[in-house]
């Protein structure tokens, strides 16, 4: 990959869409791949991303310019550290307004940093509107819709306009209810070393978690390829 690092913004139109779980998984995936990673919790409501991974996630706020500098200057720092941002719906508009104004995507690309957005789909029409806004306003971002299978394929997969239109979505596999209880108390990391150390997880649950992680990580590898493809496409695009 010609990019030195990635910045992945994980967001959705509303809360309880699964974005924090996705952010936690992505941090652990980077670690699993032996990549340096830092997380930023921009969900002022619960701050669960920071509570789950306190060693690797910093709470952020962009209400004032100092907070914006603390976050965005770090996101575009060419330090070979991958960045994962859990962007709460309450900060969505402000984040992308600032990002647009300061030329975040363009600056990241100029520094060989791949900027990506994982947008967790929810059924509301306004969620589609926001997705299209991101697509139209930020052509430099690799924008990928995320289908959280917890919402059910019947409910969403067949009716969601973006998925019907042939857009390839990243899938967030469902974690079986009997496994969820083991991973929902912060702090908690899906990293192998942590799972191996975790007490109180029966062997079959451990295997179940590993299977689920494997499926999630396959999706992230496809995301890597998508970012690489976007890079290749832009590098071979001939000047008009």
């Amino acid at each position: 990959m010609s990019f030195r690092q990635t910045v992945t913004i994980i967001t959705s139109h509303r809360e309880r869409a699964g974005k924090t779980l996705l952010a936690r998984l992505l941090v652990d995936f980077h670690q699993h791949e032996d990549r340096a990673v830092a997380g930023f919790d921009l969900d002022a409501g619960e701050r669960s991303f920071a509570r789950f991974l306190p060693d690797r996630v910093t709470a952020a706020a962009i209400d004032d310019i100092q907070g914006q500098m603390a976050l965005f200057d770090r996101l575009v720092a060419a330090d070979d550290v991958n960045k994962v941002v859990d962007l709460g719906h309450g900060s969505f508009d402000q984040f992308f307004e600032v990002a647009h104004r300061i030329g975040f995507a363009e600056e990241a690309l100029r520094r060989s940093i791949a900027p990506a957005v994982l947008y967790v789909l929810t059924p509301e029409p306004a969620a589609i509107g926001r997705y299209r806004m991101l697509r139209d306003r930020f052509p430099g971002l690799t924008l990928t819709p995320v289908h959280n299978e917890l919402f059910g394929s019947l409910h969403q997969r067949e009716s969601h306009p973006l998925l019907q239109a042939g857009t390839t979505a990243l899938r967030l596999p469902v974690l079986a209810p009997d496994l969820r209880k083991y991973v929902e108390s912060p702090p908690f990391s899906f990293a192998e070393a942590n799972l191996a150390r975790a007490t109180g997880i029966p062997l079959d649950a451990h295997i179940g978690l590993q299977n689920w992680l494997r499926r999630a990580y396959i999706e992230f590898r496809e995301l890597d390829l998508r970012v690489l493809l976007a890079d290749l496409s832009s590098s071979i695009r001939l000047p008009s």
Partner: peptide, 11 residues
């Protein structure tokens, strides 16, 4: 200089 501040000035 801060990228954010440069971005604001450019805008």
């Amino acid at each position: 200089y801060s990228f954010v501040l440069r971005g604001y000035v450019r805008h």
